[in-house]
Protein backbone atom coordinates (compact mmCIF):
# COMPACT_ATOMS: atom_id res chain seq x y z
CA UNK A 1 0.00 0.00 0.00
CA UNK A 2 2.72 2.42 0.96
CA UNK A 3 4.92 1.56 -1.93
CA UNK A 4 1.90 2.05 -4.19
CA UNK A 5 1.27 5.39 -2.63
CA UNK A 6 4.89 6.35 -2.98
CA UNK A 7 4.82 5.34 -6.61
CA UNK A 8 1.78 7.53 -7.22
CA UNK A 9 3.40 10.45 -5.46
CA UNK A 10 6.60 9.99 -7.43
CA UNK A 11 4.55 10.01 -10.60
CA UNK A 12 2.93 13.26 -9.56
CA UNK A 13 6.34 14.76 -8.83
CA UNK A 14 7.77 13.61 -12.14
CA UNK A 15 4.89 15.11 -14.04
CA UNK A 16 5.12 18.31 -12.05
CA UNK A 17 8.77 18.63 -13.04
CA UNK A 18 7.63 18.78 -16.64
CA UNK A 19 6.27 22.25 -15.92
CA UNK A 20 9.74 23.45 -16.78
CA UNK A 21 10.57 21.23 -19.74
CA UNK A 22 10.28 22.38 -23.32
CA UNK A 23 7.33 21.32 -25.45
CA UNK A 24 8.24 18.50 -27.74
CA UNK A 25 5.62 19.49 -30.28
CA UNK A 26 6.04 22.34 -32.68
CA UNK A 27 3.43 24.86 -33.69
CA UNK A 28 2.72 23.37 -37.11
CA UNK A 29 2.30 24.74 -39.80
CA UNK A 30 4.33 27.87 -38.95
CA UNK A 31 7.14 25.62 -37.90
CA UNK A 32 7.67 22.44 -39.90
CA UNK A 33 8.60 19.41 -37.85
CA UNK A 34 11.59 17.31 -38.76
CA UNK A 35 10.42 14.07 -40.37
CA UNK A 36 12.87 11.20 -40.63
CA UNK A 37 13.29 9.63 -44.06
CA UNK A 38 11.56 6.52 -42.82
CA UNK A 39 8.53 8.49 -41.68
CA UNK A 40 5.34 6.80 -42.82
CA UNK A 41 3.58 9.26 -45.07
CA UNK A 42 2.41 9.33 -48.68
CA UNK A 43 3.20 6.15 -50.59
CA UNK A 44 5.28 6.16 -53.77
CA UNK A 45 6.45 3.61 -56.30
CA UNK A 46 10.13 3.81 -57.11
CA UNK A 47 12.47 2.85 -59.90
CA UNK A 48 15.44 0.56 -59.64
CA UNK A 49 18.98 1.90 -60.14
CA UNK A 50 18.66 1.26 -63.89
CA UNK A 51 15.70 3.60 -64.06
CA UNK A 52 13.22 0.78 -64.63
CA UNK A 53 10.03 0.33 -62.69
CA UNK A 54 10.74 -1.63 -59.56
CA UNK A 55 7.23 -2.89 -59.02
CA UNK A 56 6.77 -6.43 -60.33
CA UNK A 57 3.05 -6.58 -59.52
CA UNK A 58 3.49 -9.47 -57.12
CA UNK A 59 0.43 -8.39 -55.13
CA UNK A 60 2.10 -8.79 -51.77
CA UNK A 61 1.47 -5.17 -50.77
CA UNK A 62 -2.19 -5.60 -51.64
CA UNK A 63 -2.53 -8.72 -49.54
CA UNK A 64 -0.57 -7.22 -46.65
CA UNK A 65 -2.75 -4.11 -46.60
CA UNK A 66 -5.02 -4.33 -43.56
CA UNK A 67 -7.58 -1.98 -45.09
CA UNK A 68 -7.40 -3.52 -48.57
CA UNK A 69 -6.77 -0.15 -50.17
CA UNK A 70 -4.30 -1.33 -52.82
CA UNK A 71 -5.44 -2.85 -56.08
CA UNK A 72 -3.33 -3.67 -59.10
CA UNK A 73 -3.16 -5.87 -62.15
CA UNK A 74 -0.06 -7.60 -63.37
CA UNK A 75 1.19 -7.42 -66.91
CA UNK A 76 4.34 -8.58 -68.67
CA UNK A 77 6.51 -6.17 -70.64
CA UNK A 78 8.18 -7.03 -73.91
CA UNK A 79 11.50 -7.40 -72.13
CA UNK A 80 10.06 -10.03 -69.79
CA UNK A 81 9.65 -7.86 -66.72
CA UNK A 82 6.45 -8.09 -64.75
CA UNK A 83 4.87 -4.71 -64.11
CA UNK A 84 1.57 -3.34 -62.84
CA UNK A 85 -0.82 -2.46 -65.66
CA UNK A 86 -2.59 -0.31 -63.15
CA UNK A 87 -1.75 0.37 -59.56
CA UNK A 88 -4.26 2.13 -57.38
CA UNK A 89 -4.08 3.21 -53.77
CA UNK A 90 -7.18 4.59 -52.16
CA UNK A 91 -5.58 7.00 -49.70
CA UNK A 92 -8.95 7.82 -48.22
CA UNK A 93 -8.73 4.32 -46.73
CA UNK A 94 -4.98 4.12 -46.20
CA UNK A 95 -3.86 4.15 -42.58
CA UNK A 96 -0.19 4.66 -43.47
CA UNK A 97 0.79 1.60 -41.49
CA UNK A 98 3.67 0.74 -43.80
CA UNK A 99 2.81 -2.96 -44.06
CA UNK A 100 2.96 -2.67 -47.86
CA UNK A 101 6.52 -1.41 -47.68
CA UNK A 102 7.50 -4.25 -45.37
CA UNK A 103 5.86 -6.80 -47.64
CA UNK A 104 7.41 -5.45 -50.84
CA UNK A 105 10.09 -7.86 -52.04
CA UNK A 106 11.56 -5.37 -54.51
CA UNK A 107 11.64 -2.17 -52.41
CA UNK A 108 9.29 -0.67 -54.97
CA UNK A 109 6.61 0.65 -52.69
CA UNK A 110 7.91 3.10 -50.12
CA UNK A 111 6.40 5.50 -47.63
CA UNK A 112 7.70 9.04 -47.71
CA UNK A 113 7.83 11.82 -45.12
CA UNK A 114 5.00 13.69 -46.79
CA UNK A 115 1.73 13.64 -44.97
CA UNK A 116 0.13 16.81 -46.29
CA UNK A 117 -2.35 15.28 -48.66
CA UNK A 118 -5.74 16.63 -47.61
CA UNK A 119 -8.41 17.03 -50.23
CA UNK A 120 -11.92 18.38 -50.26
CA UNK A 121 -13.03 15.53 -52.52
CA UNK A 122 -12.52 12.00 -51.34
CA UNK A 123 -12.18 10.87 -54.92
CA UNK A 124 -9.04 13.02 -55.20
CA UNK A 125 -7.48 10.71 -52.63
CA UNK A 126 -7.48 7.83 -55.08
CA UNK A 127 -3.99 7.72 -56.54
CA UNK A 128 -3.32 5.86 -59.75
CA UNK A 129 0.05 4.64 -60.91
CA UNK A 130 0.93 7.93 -62.60
CA UNK A 131 0.45 9.69 -59.27
CA UNK A 132 2.46 7.14 -57.35
CA UNK A 133 5.43 6.46 -59.60
CA UNK A 134 8.47 8.62 -58.90
CA UNK A 135 11.57 8.92 -61.00
CA UNK A 136 14.07 7.74 -58.45
CA UNK A 137 15.09 4.97 -56.12
CA UNK A 138 13.60 6.40 -52.95
CA UNK A 139 15.23 5.30 -49.73
CA UNK A 140 16.99 2.24 -51.12
CA UNK A 141 19.47 3.20 -53.77
CA UNK A 142 21.16 -0.02 -54.81
CA UNK A 143 18.64 -2.83 -54.82
CA UNK A 144 17.52 -4.21 -58.12
CA UNK A 145 15.27 -7.25 -57.93
CA UNK A 146 16.12 -8.63 -61.33
CA UNK A 147 19.83 -8.69 -60.55
CA UNK A 148 19.03 -11.07 -57.73
CA UNK A 149 16.16 -13.13 -59.10
CA UNK A 150 16.62 -15.88 -61.64
CA UNK A 151 14.00 -14.68 -64.10
CA UNK A 152 15.64 -13.76 -67.38
CA UNK A 153 14.84 -10.38 -68.85
CA UNK A 154 16.16 -8.52 -71.83
CA UNK A 155 19.75 -7.63 -71.03
CA UNK A 156 20.08 -10.19 -68.25
CA UNK A 157 20.10 -13.76 -69.43
CA UNK A 158 19.83 -16.94 -67.41
CA UNK A 159 22.85 -17.43 -65.22
CA UNK A 160 23.65 -13.74 -65.05
CA UNK A 161 21.87 -12.96 -61.84
CA UNK A 162 23.60 -12.76 -58.49
CA UNK A 163 25.18 -15.99 -57.41
CA UNK A 164 24.22 -17.87 -60.56
CA UNK A 165 26.26 -20.28 -62.63
CA UNK A 166 25.95 -20.18 -66.42
CA UNK A 167 23.07 -22.24 -67.79
CA UNK A 168 23.52 -25.99 -67.74
CA UNK A 169 24.10 -27.73 -71.04
CA UNK A 170 21.68 -30.63 -70.68
CA UNK A 171 23.20 -32.46 -73.61
CA UNK A 172 26.62 -32.62 -72.00
CA UNK A 173 27.66 -35.94 -70.50
CA UNK A 174 30.36 -34.45 -68.32
CA UNK A 175 29.85 -34.96 -64.62
Amino acid sequence: MFSALRSQLRTLWTILQHTFSRAETVPYPEQQPYLAPRYRGRIVLTNDPDGQERCVACNLCAVACPVDCIALQQGVKQDGRWYPEFFRINFSRCILCGMCEEACPTNAIQLTPDFEMCEYERSSMVYEKEHLQIDGTGKYHDYSFYRVAGLAIAGKDKGEAQNEAPPVDVKSLLP
Binding site: A62, V63, D68, C69, I70, A71, L72, I89, N90, R93
Partner: peptide, 8 residues
Protein backbone atom coordinates in the same frame (compact mmCIF):
# COMPACT_ATOMS: atom_id res chain seq x y z
CA UNK B 1 -7.28 -8.01 -51.30
CA UNK B 2 -8.08 -4.61 -52.70
CA UNK B 3 -11.71 -4.41 -51.63
CA UNK B 4 -11.53 -0.68 -50.97
CA UNK B 5 -9.47 0.12 -54.05
CA UNK B 6 -10.76 -2.14 -56.82
CA UNK B 7 -13.59 0.16 -57.79
CA UNK B 8 -12.17 3.35 -56.28
Amino acid sequence: SGRTAMHA
